[in-house]
Design a protein around this nucleic acid. Sequence first.
DNA 1: AGCACGCCGACT
DNA 2: GTCGGCGTGCTC
Length: 810
Amino acid sequence: MQRIAQVLINITTKNINKAFSYSIPDHLDYVDAGWRVLVPFGNRKLEGFVIDIIIEEDSNRIELKPIIDILDNDKWFDEHMMHTARWISEYYLCNLVDAMRLFIPGKSGVKSVVAYSVEMEVDTETTLVALSAKYPEYSQVLSYIETHSPILSVKLEKKFGPSVLKAIRYLVRNKIIIAESIAKKMGTHRYKTIMSLLMDAEATREQISKLAKKPAQCRLLQYLIDHGQLASDELKKSNTSHETVKKLVQDGLIKLEKVQVVRDSYADICKAKNDISLTAEQQQVLEKIMPKMEARKFQSFLLHGITGSGKTQVYIEAVAAARQKNRQAIVLVPEIALTSQIVSRFKARFGDDVVVMHSKLSTGERYDAWQRLRGKQAGIVIGARSAIFAPLPDVGIIIMDEEHEFTYKQEETPRYHTRQVAITRATLSGAVVIMGSATPAIETYFQTQMGQHTLLLMSKRIANANLPAVTIVDMREELRKKRRSVISLPLQELLQETISRGEQAIILLNRRGYATFVMCRECGHIVRCKHCDISLVYHSVGKKLKCHYCQCIETVPDICPECNSRYIRFFGTGTQKLQEEIVTLFPHIRVVRMDQDTTGGRMAYDRILEAFAKGEYDLLLGTQMVAKGHDVKNVTAVGIIAADSILNLPDFRAAERVYALLTQAAGRAGRGDKAGKVVVQTYNPEHYAVQAGANQDYQSFYESEIVYRKALCYPPYGQIIKLTVQAKEESMARNQAEQIIKELRSLMAESKTVEIIGPFPAPIAKVNDIFRMNIIIKAKDLTNVRAYITSMGLTIRPDVMIDVEPVSIM
DNA sequence: AGCACGCCGACT
DNA sequence: GTCGGCGTGCTC
């Protein structure tokens, strides 16, 4: 009888979707499902996840390679994680390894490198002679390998340059040297050495008096008496050298210990206690949440609170309640860089109990942060969507701020939605989920109405600040009045008034760059990216054309590449041009621009916001990011330039996006005691999303939108799977897509509730020289569709991307 | 993913 | 004839 481990190999290839069997050596007999292990795979050593143990009755029936080692001191994946990973792989149609990888810090727990040494049977002397006649440069490499073996390929490259790869290949092929895979564990603990006294202070003082002629040793001992301990990397603090330490250890006066270092890059953020009294509304909402928390049962809430109603304080109190019961909390935010306010408020309240997950954390830092949560040394994790996978042993509450944000959907495999994972996880561990938003996703609101979530309403702004007054400006009307400026007259007037009163304004324009497209006036030719099917954007900084998809940069052509005319002109307005226009209109205004181009650096976003909040600028202009979650009391005016440009996109969520954008942008105005004013410029003033957005009337927006969704069977009434077929040739992509559709149709011939649309080229059909063909599958229920897709083998085809419940059908 | 194997064209 | 191009298939 023999226990055999079923192991998934942690490599990112779609076409391996099966477990491999390994024997378990005696000294690792405790290895069980959920362990991370090191296994031989081909001629490499790789990380594997044990997903199952099977018992083989007659042992040695098959030759199996053994597990080499374990990667952690205990099992990494607990029952809940395994369950959630399985659910993700089934629901979102991805490989189980891909789903499991979400639960580990970094991409892999091991780094595999190759080392070379000379083959045992090879007689180096004669080989060298033979080689030097034929390939003198190869013989040099060989003799270097002989004297330095085993040697890493990177080191050989450093020594001989990249051409050494050719030599290595030759030597391996001819069995003169052998390649050996070496696995290095990644992201494990970092240790530092701490020294401390072996005896008590009294005894040590006695020793010091005997060491009068050894001043360095005395200094160190004295330091240890005063401070208790000293880290070896802080030796210079006591003005002592390494040799002194060695001597004292030898003499038995001090001892050295290895202690694990926990890296925490946010450790230094303030933690002043704040005492905020709750509003009546906040109190009421919390009273509904608390009993459910007591019950330790899953319950989800939709916290529908208008902008500025104080949702963050509700989150903080709810988390505090969970912590009091010694349960842990996950706080999800759409994007950590844009939400430093929420982070600092949690830090201020909970101090070191908060772990901030940051995309810029190194694997090691991430590992340590997770380790603190696993060991319950910290109880709260804040982060973007990946924080939902943090290894908390006992989750009591999951907060999802701005639950409608699309960043909660991962746009690469596994294409999970954080909301779904949160609910799955909370169900398993009996936790409460609070989804907060001023503009809930249509699906979430619908589910709430169906009784899946409990609705919590907050409809008053803190300190009774009023919602801003909104003016809709019909830009067609402006044009009729011969006003061609991007900034309409009403907006100009609003800006003028606001600035003259010493107040601040925000302007939002959804396009960055200077001119959004470049066209020949003679023939209408539009300059496009060579690799992507998209028009290039002119950037005035550097005077270049940029592709916003593949980031490539081109020079502006002098003459039209189509008709050779010289009438190349710039059209459309981006944030750069808008800034220029504002400076022309109001020469004395201090303007700061915020978009991807100005927030390149790590903290640039915070810096700009901080300067603006301090009043160093009168006007903040930029893309969507100016509308996110900040709170500047002196802002009383907001202008939205092309509010409806999104409406022209062929996407069923366009209206929802417009409504959310309008509400959020408008929500920036009048957060203090002064009234706010908003100007919305649009070419679709009568559209329900624009109207409802201007009135901040979610109900009426929801009611119009849900009718449209129902009529066209879009979510929440129908579910969607998007298939994207990729190929280098357009015809190839089309053929493949057509074949898939044919097969799907024949499989689903009898089911009438499934609708297959396509194939049609993705709205941006070519990105980075790859053509993309889309297929949309709409159904009341996707269960059968999933089964068909899997049985057709689409899940393991590298040229087919599967997006279950896509955020957009583009 | 890597890496071997294997079948074709461009060279000594 | 050999070297090296890349297409295919396998890894317990």
